[in-house]
Amino acid sequence: MVKLSLAEQQMLDGDFGKGTQTAMKIQVAIAEAFDAPYMVPISRAHVALSNQEADLWFVEKLVSQGAKCKIRPTVNPSFNWEQMSQITNLSSEDVDIVRRTDNAYKKIGALMTYDCTPYLQLNVPKVDDIISYSESSATPFVNSVYGAKTNRESAQSALCAAVTGVVPYYGYLMKENRKGEILVNVLAKMDYDFDFQLLGYVLPLKIGFKIPVFNFANKKEKNNFSNASLMNLGAQMNTSGNVAIYHILGYTPEANTLENAFQSNLVPEEIDITQEDLDSVRDKISAPIGKIDFALFGCPHLTFEQIEIVTKIIEGKN
């Protein structure tokens, strides 16, 4: 049974209103499901707003019950109907759901950033911060690159955390659950950001959902990783698998040494990843080369540096 502080118990009892009570009820249920002993305060939250029916139903329910965020979360994108309506015809139903979602999240107190990479610009945590982040690229980035602590939250559980200001203490919030479980010797050179996309996608298919500790044995600059490469590594691992934290030996904050990364002198398991592994996954998931009708980049949202790459090619071409 989770032990609640006086204020948390008052939230559960409805003393802070029905909306806060609903959010706390859900969090107590999560705490009990994961045997969390108590709640801990959060300093930041990010809600992977999806602009889909269940997402809208939940936030409107909380709003109708008077919920207000104690910690104002940033939010994921829906779609920019004003900009998209210049390109295509949008159905009134689709625009309506965007407007309702926008309205509900504003009412509950969210910051309408509409960005799936908040960790690069508007919602940047520090090492050891306890936070509540949903979104497949965000959770691994903040856990791994910054050393902040979040579980792999859903949009709904992160929104509940934003409302109550606390999360159940379990999972990746605890140091012992963040230790590496497998040493991944990356033998590919990893010269290009795209290699990290493929590495992220192939790894869970080979190792399951273990916490990897990467050793980039043949990478030229071992202490130089672009934001895009780390963003994409995490995004792909959390898409083809369920990997919400990783370590890079000698680079990320919890992996200064092999011993720190595994919290032990023993490496429980080891695997090699070659260039052939990366190439084979691309061959498997990509459509055949040939004529195309369109190009779509930015999943996760492109960084400024990535957009500059595109622009330089355009300028060179023209």
Binding site: S50, N51, N76, P77, S78, F79, N80, W81, Q83, M84, I87, T88, N89, L90, S91, D94, Y114, D115, C116, S136, S137, F194, Q197, L198, G200, Y201, N232, A235, Q236, T239, S240, V281, I285, S286, A287, G290, K291, I292, D293, F294, A295, L296, F297, G298, C299, P300
Partner: peptide
């Protein structure tokens, strides 16, 4: 395009078509 995700109904005009992306996640979703 700002503030927009590829997993949204605003891309209906591309349904059934073939594109190029740098993101396996984009292709998956």
């Amino acid at each position: 395009i700002s503030n927009t995700c590829m997993d949204q109904p605003c891309w209906k005009f591309l349904y059934g078509k073939k594109g190029v992306t740098d993101s396996p996640k984009c292709a998956y979703y």
